[in-house]
Design a protein around this nucleic acid. Structure first.
Length: 107
DNA sequence: CGAATGACAATCT
DNA sequence: TAGATTGCCATTC
């Protein structure tokens, strides 16, 4: 197993692995924590390449719209089902109720 | 080193 | 309001 990924990716995996159940986080937040509030895409790319051996709850990582990743990538309806099982509430639009489940970091 | 990629975000029309 | 475009930045070829 060679470490193809550089530090940034591991930082992303580290944060994602810390997401408690029933909570979600946005790509922009993770990027901001890493010091690059504009690297939201890098976070998404890290998720795309996220190795399952990290047990990354990538289903808890959503965009700011509270929207989940494309079913084509995740696997048709799996992500939403997982979140619902963890106690995450969804809106009628199929988006996560960010105001209730979005992680709030210590201010 | 340069070009291409990408599970986003913000802005414009 | 919804769809399309641009910007941003790390990783890969």
């Amino acid at each position: 197993m060679s470490k193809s990924k550089q530090g940034f990716f591991e930082e992303v995996y580290n944060i994602v692995s810390q997401i408690p159940e029933g909570s979600v986080i946005t790509y922009g937040m993770i990027a901001s924590m890493l010091g690059n509030p504009r690297a939201s895409r890098i976070v998404g790319y890290a998720m795309h390449d996220a190795p399952p051996n990290r047990s990354l709850p990538c289903h808890r990582v959503v965009n700011k719209q509270g929207r989940l990743s494309p079913d084509s990538i995740f696997g048709a309806g799996n992500q939403r089902d997982l979140l619902e099982k963890e106690g995450v509430a969804f809106n009628e639009d199929g988006c996560i109720d960010m105001d209730k489940h979005l992680i709030k970091w210590d201010l």
